[in-house]
Design a protein around this nucleic acid. Structure first.
Lengths: 209, 209
DNA sequence: GTGATAGGCTATCAATGATAGGTTGACGGG
DNA sequence: CCCGTCAACCTATCATTGATAGCCTATCAC
């Protein structure tokens, strides 16, 4: 069932090449989004993929590593979403607000992906892809997060320069500002929020240098 | 072992009255803070309390209910911390900043308590204290959260009035602003943050009406 | 062919949250 | 004083979960 992802599949349903890993991640993300992270088991993932549960461990060292890899993916997707609106002729503050809007839209459109990226208990310690985090070798999860943050930082630097720590502080504060809203909207959707669109607009409008 | 919490204990170590529940919560919070929420098991809690693991279920319907109850507690403690600095003769914005500072201090001093309150996957569905959430009966977790939020809302109302939705939107935006910083500092402590104190000061300084 | 390797399977573990059913001891009415 | 009640606890036991061990099979380089 739904094995037809336009990828090479032989008679038994076995895939060639290394895309099983990607398929597992796709399935895991789908299940996370459907049932919530805590309710998804390795057996469910394996069944949906069409393999046995222990076979997952040929591709990932642990269940947490799947989440960590999804975390890297999510950071990448978010960075890309922001990157798409980061350029242009508008003023830095205007572009920063557009990035904030892209950020909010991304998070609310794919709340579980955002959750994996930003609200996980501890995505480290489960370094994806077998990369041993040695000295000098950066944790891929952290690296992806940094790349994502750098999008915002660059625009702030355009405005205030990068001489002292001010740009860094402003960028981090801005990031926190936007993250705060979407993380609360996602984690506390039962809260009696004001009109969502008005709230978002007001919140983004309060961004400044 | 550390049974001496200045409460009535009979010869067998059995407690009289209903404070077992409170003791379990104390122990659970301590263990959460020590080892992180995901690493604490019901057996560890029970052992630390000095009872068998199934005995926990005489006081809580599930493990999640323990977390939910701690969530209520955390909201209460946070509301109290903010309430302590909410009064006085200073301007509303000044008092709002003081509340923000109290909020930040609370969250960073007790990150696991804050985590339980604001970053749990889904604290609902495990309504504490056996209260069935019927129509018209509010979920205790939500009620505690609302009480906590009301602290901020009141101060905002002092400034802008409560005629239209603006006070609500501003209060929620402000809450999100502060929450964003502490939740990121807690969840991403491996991130290369700028100087923490400078960052917090800048962030709080950017609060406004 | 033949050996290596990737990918998979069944069987099985230890640990975890949760339940079933029985036991103990305090307490109050008759 | 006795007996029912009730809260709190225990042991034994489940089903489920993440993870490991050991074996099988197809593909491919040589």
């Amino acid at each position: 069932m739904m094995q037809d992802l336009a990828e090479a599949v032989d008679g038994d349903g076995r895939r060639r090449g290394g895309n099983r890993r990607a398929q597992i991640l796709d399935v895991a993300l789908k299940l996370f989004a459907q049932k919530g992270m805590a309710q998804v088991t390795t057996r469910q993932i394996a069944q949906e993929v069409g393999i046995s549960q222990p076979s997952l461990y040929a591709h990932f060292r642990s269940a947490d590593e799947i989440a960590a890899e999804l975390c890297v993916r999510a950071f990448g997707a978010l960075a890309e979403a922001m990157g798409r609106v980061a350029g242009g002729d508008a003023s830095p503050i205007e572009r920063l607000r557009r990035m904030g809007r892209a950020y909010v839209d991304f998070a609310l459109d794919q709340p579980d992906m955002y959750r994996v990226a930003f609200m996980l208990e501890d995505p480290r310690g489960c370094t994806p892809h077998g990369i041993e985090t040695e000295e000098g070798l950066v944790d891929p999860v952290l690296a992806a997060g940094l790349q994502c943050f750098a999008c915002m930082h660059r625009v702030v630097v355009e405005q205030v320069g990068s001489d002292d720590d001010r740009a860094m502080i402003l960028a981090q504060s801005t990031w926190a500002h936007v993250h705060g809203l979407v993380s609360l909207l996602i984690a506390r959707h039962e809260f009696p929020w004001a009109d969502r669109e008005a709230l978002i607009e007001e919140h983004l409008g309060r961004m400044s240098f």
